[in-house]
Design a protein around this nucleic acid. Structure first.
Lengths: 248, 248
DNA sequence: CGTAGCTTTGAAGATTTTCAACCTTAGTGG
DNA sequence: CCACTAAGGTTGAAAATCTTCAAAGCTACG
């Protein structure tokens, strides 16, 4: 038990039309020829094991990555060796955009589970952009959304209690899975408690206790990495107004 | 006393070559004609009073703004009315980039003191980008840097204590002023205690106490909004390793 | 079956917030 | 010119939240 039948595991393969082509080219209004030209430069990774590093802080920007299957964490390391997870990525997500400022990665990307990616050479994108006006526009949109997401993250860390943060995190995952056609209420966490804690800027024990507490209130059912949200509405209550004590 | 002679106030006018033209066009390698064409679309605001709103969350993206003089805070409002200041901007800074994703502002910009800005119509930039390859490249660099800055902010909120955050904030301001040719060790805070507290995700009382404490340790001299950093090195110690008790 | 790694739980402790009061400064009107 | 007021800032004490330390439990894997 734990993993229900209707839960599709993340590492099932997603067709590649779904990733680069669709999100990049078609949305940018490219014609078939342009799409073909760009996708020819694209390389596909073999399955990468848990812990595999896609890129590392400081390295020059060589590729953008689109996840085909699996999950990835992006983290930043401070001078004194502390790590802060900045975001998690799921299939379909584009990674590496934050390197565009300096053409150098400012963060490190590591696979959380067996992961496959498409690699788009940056120089190919760079030259394609000069010829295809829609592409750069699309890219700016992506980056703009990235900033908006980061902003929400600062609000989360700045304004929300531990309880609210964890609830918001579960809702965030729920929305991500739903967008990918998976269950919004039942899923497996791709990351460890330690990684959740780090992401939410909490101690691992705090996360553990909150999970227990959520379960006690009937908000969720949790079994190791399996999560079932018993009520999205109650979870929203918890995420956005802890002051109004969350009764079922 | 408080305001020394050698401290140039922010609201002294910065020449406009300094803002849009320089940062945007010249850096993008545009020729004189292109630069001229783009700068012709640019509008200059009259001095805006403290509290003036430049743009508001939800509004469609109409302009990018470059600060000529003054200071601006960017904040995001949550559904339940809480505000989180995302960043402060000083003369020369470009604002509005985070609206590119949805072509709609996701945050609100308000003048902290009397402020003057250049307004660049987004449609002009958008069309110019299609013709001038260097421009979009430059824009992507800007946005990339914005993401890198946001990342650092998440690390600050996630990994640093109140003490470390405030020290890092003072060093951040110091660097900003230095970059603008002003004193790195003596300046006036453009924002209130409340705004500092909100930015650092702390209670206003905590900020106040820390200022007092810093002063007691001889790290700074503070008088209302005037700040003198007595030792940048000691302040760095405080910002990055509070564990090693900060002795002069 | 045993070990290693991750997770949970409890108790004590630290940091930060909240509440409440007071102080200071700048602006206002008598 | 001076007192008054409002806004912002400081300080102290109590309380809450979250973390740390320590130990034990569980699961997966060899």
């Amino acid at each position: 038990m734990g993993t229900s039948d209707n839960i599709v595991r993340l590492h099932q393969r997603v067709s590649c039309d779904e990733c680069s082509l669709n999100r990049f080219c078609l949305a940018a209004g490219l014609d078939a020829q342009d799409t073909e030209r760009l996708s020819a430069t694209m390389r596909h990774s073999r399955p990468l094991p848990r812990g595999h590093r896609l890129f590392r802080s400081g390295e020059p920007l060589e590729h953008l990555y689109v996840i085909k299957a699996g999950a990835v964490k992006i983290y930043s390391s401070t001078a004194d060796g502390l790590e802060q997870i900045l975001r998690f990525h799921l299939p379909g997500d584009l990674m590496g955009l934050d390197a565009m400022g300096e053409e150098r990665h400012m963060s490190t990307a590591v696979a959380l589970e067996t992961t496959m990616v498409c690699m788009l050479p940056w120089h190919a994108i760079d030259t394609a952009m000069r010829q295809i006006p829609g592409l750069q526009h699309q890219l700016l949109r992506f980056v703009g959304n990235e900033i908006a997401t980061e902003n929400e993250r600062v609000v989360l860390l700045g304004q929300r209690s531990a309880r609210e943060r964890l609830a918001a995190f579960l809702l965030y995952l729920s929305a991500q899975f739903k967008r990918r056609g998976l269950s919004a209420t039942e899923f497996n966490l791709p990351m460890s408690r330690q990684e959740i804690a780090n992401y939410l800027a909490l101690a691992i024990e705090t996360v553990s206790r909150l999970f227990t507490s959520f379960q006690g209130e009937g908000l969720v059912t949790i079994e190791r990495r399996f999560v079932r949200l018993e009520s999205l509405e109650a979870m929203r209550q918890t995420a956005y107004s802890d002051s109004v004590s969350a009764v079922s």
